[in-house]
Design a protein around this nucleic acid. Structure first.
Lengths: 146, 146
DNA sequence: TAAATAAAAGATAAAATAGTATTTTATTTG
DNA sequence: CAAATAAAATACTATTTTATCTTTTATTTA
């Protein structure tokens, strides 16, 4: 469904968010150790997100990635689009160039329902809520569990 | 969502199906012209489906691809799994290696709903029904429309 | 039986995705 | 200011996906 880049990016940002209230900036190395993602690859993703102003960063000692007030209301959907583009949210499920209500492909309506559900999930489940679940231990980002 | 291979494969099989009641065998060239898919690439996909016994084929003059009685009840789900594997139906939405009800990722339940919906769509919308929609003109597989 | 036909199989190539390593730049702190 | 730190930028490598071309094999039909 999501690309690897997107999976790592989402996990990284959720983790940054979940630590953010402590006023902590997180280095890529720490992030990747926590979320079990490849370091250099994830660094690129986060740098791209920083250029797109979805996350913030500072260089130098005690630098790292964080989320500022302007970015607090980011949705998972914004993140996915920033990393993977809108391929998941546009276009025909069967790849038809011109598929529409007027000239639907054979799975047009059902596929639309699936996609709308996904869009709803990604826009309504706010990053804040998600990060709080992780911070509280209700949900996890890690692979090997206590 | 689906790979290109899967998009072409689904379209090809629906088209074969929709012509099948006429007792016609379809050559790759004709199929690809109709569904606007790359010929050699689609040939490979159909050959793979033939090896997996989801479609039938014969060589030589008047040969081509068709669907026999044993294959008539194929579901879209079977096709997708035969082409793309089960990656879409297994594993965590965020790529966690161990994600479960006990230790859910932050989108576990919502993602599960999406996936279950997709599975339902692909198993319940029978190929026969889909192909009949195409044959009757209710749905289309083509890109440029009259 | 020879020619034509069409799938099967195999080899190759281009593009996208995934991942790694190195160099540069900005910032902090002693 | 110098050393250390950490992101930014760049370059490089590997793998997978998508796509094309060529050769082989099976089948039909004249």
């Amino acid at each position: 469904m999501f690309s690897k880049a997107c999976e790592y990016g989402i996990r990284a940002v959720i983790y940054i968010w979940s630590q953010n209230k402590k006023g902590i900036k997180l280095g890529v190395k720490d992030i990747c150790k926590e979320i079990d993602a490849p370091e250099y690859f994830t660094a690129k993703i986060l740098q791209s997100l920083a250029r797109q102003n979805l996350v913030s960063s500072t260089k130098g000692p005690n630098g790292g990635f964080y989320i500022d007030a302007d970015q607090e209301n980011m949705r998972l959907l914004d993140l996915v689009i920033a990393i993977d583009g809108d391929r998941l949210f546009n276009g025909c499920g069967l790849g038809l160039k011109h598929c529409s209500e007027k000239h639907p492909c054979p799975i047009h309506y059902e596929y639309k329902d699936i996609r709308d559900g996904l869009t709803k999930l990604l826009s309504e489940k706010s990053l804040k809520a998600v990060a709080e679940e992780v911070a509280s231990g209700k949900a996890t980002l890690v692979t090997i569990l206590a």
